[in-house]
């Protein structure tokens, strides 16, 4: 759920244009009040609850929750999965965005749509697809099993499911920007004798670095927080194939509320760090734009 909210928020974020309206002042205040109350009820209150519940039995019990080997394993697995999924999607996102924004080819809009599929499909379905594909009764399962390879109900399955659900984040961030920027800069570089790689590294990449960083942050947040798809392919082996979100569910189901909310609070903290980084990136990129153009950023007007 948090991921969805983040995606939505992000879609509307990043626009700094001020609306020049003629409505009376109270309309603006009403809108503001509604927003604040809504955010307070649906975002702030749950967040506060997580930390209150986690600390219900004191800081000792809270920190003891992280001494549990299963919780540590879940944290380690979540970090491992993110460490694999994010670089993979970084490479893929840049490649895909570059291909789509800078080249003309048949079926381009189809590829663009394809990248959005993980956003449209329920994560549970995407998990189930991998079970059908890699499961023992599935298409590739018997071959994998015969060769001693375990994909589903093991780390690779979790990584694959996570990669799937996080595919759009970096690519979607880059494509509009790269399309907007056009190919003039690259053409100029090539005319001046730069190689393809030099052009990419010294022209394309610097142009999109903020969007890229932003995409990486969102991608990482989703990779760590994914529940549905991972739940289907995990097998829920304690201390082995449970990521942090799954561990939260397990602990909750075991009446271990303090530990459940402690792990949840760690996830929430990760989300908060993500938000802080996101804001920082937005500020820095706005500052960079200001420097480039010599004009004050919209925020400062």
């Amino acid at each position: 759920m948090g991921d969805l909210v983040r995606v939505r928020r992000h879609r509307f974020a990043g626009r700094h244009d001020r609306a020049a309206t003629t409505e009376p002042r109270w309309v603006g205040l009403l809108l503001l009040a509604t927003t604040v109350v809504f955010l307070g009820l649906f975002l702030l209150l749950p967040l506060v609850t997580v930390f209150t519940e986690a600390l219900r039995k004191g800081a000792g019990a809270y920190f003891a929750s992280f001494g549990d080997p299963a919780a540590l394993a879940a944290i380690r697995l979540t970090l491992t999965v993110a460490a694999i999924a994010v670089p993979l999607n970084l490479v893929f996102g840049v490649t895909a965005a570059w291909a789509i924004a800078k080249f003309e080819f048949r079926g381009k809009s189809f590829v663009t749509t394809l990248i959005d599929v993980p956003l449209a499909v329920s994560p549970v379905i995407s998990g189930a697809i991998y079970v059908l594909l890699f499961g023992l009764q599935g298409l590739l399962g018997p071959w994998l099993s015969a060769h001693g390879l375990q994909v589903i109900f093991a780390v690779p399955g979790i990584v694959i499911a996570t990669v799937f659900v996080t595919v759009p984040f970096i690519a979607r961030e880059l494509i509009p920007l790269m399309q907007e920027q056009g190919i003039e800069d690259e053409e100029a570089a090539l005319t001046l004798g730069a190689s393809g790689w030099q052009t990419f590294r010294r022209v394309t990449l610097p142009n999109v670095k903020w969007a890229l960083l932003y995409g990486v942050i969102l991608c990482n947040a989703r990779a760590m927080g994914e529940f549905g798809a991972v739940s289907v392919v995990s097998g829920h082996i304690r201390g082995k194939t449970n990521t942090m979100p799954l561990q939260v569910e397990i602990l909750y189901n075991e009446y271990n509320f303090v530990a459940a909310f402690a792990v949840a609070s760690l996830l929430a903290l990760l989300a908060l760090v993500t938000l802080a980084l996101k804001t920082l990136v937005e500020r820095l990129s706005a500052a960079a734009v200001t420097l480039d153009s010599g004009l004050p950023a919209a925020e400062e007007i």
């Binding site: 694999i84 993979l88 490479v91 390879l149 994909v151 780390v155």
Partner: peptide, 15 residues
């Protein structure tokens, strides 16, 4: 665990 081998392949040498 053979799964780790596959995970390692998935890393594409980046880790």
């Amino acid at each position: 665990d053979p799964s780790w081998l596959l995970a390692a392949v998935l890393l594409l040498g980046s880790l």
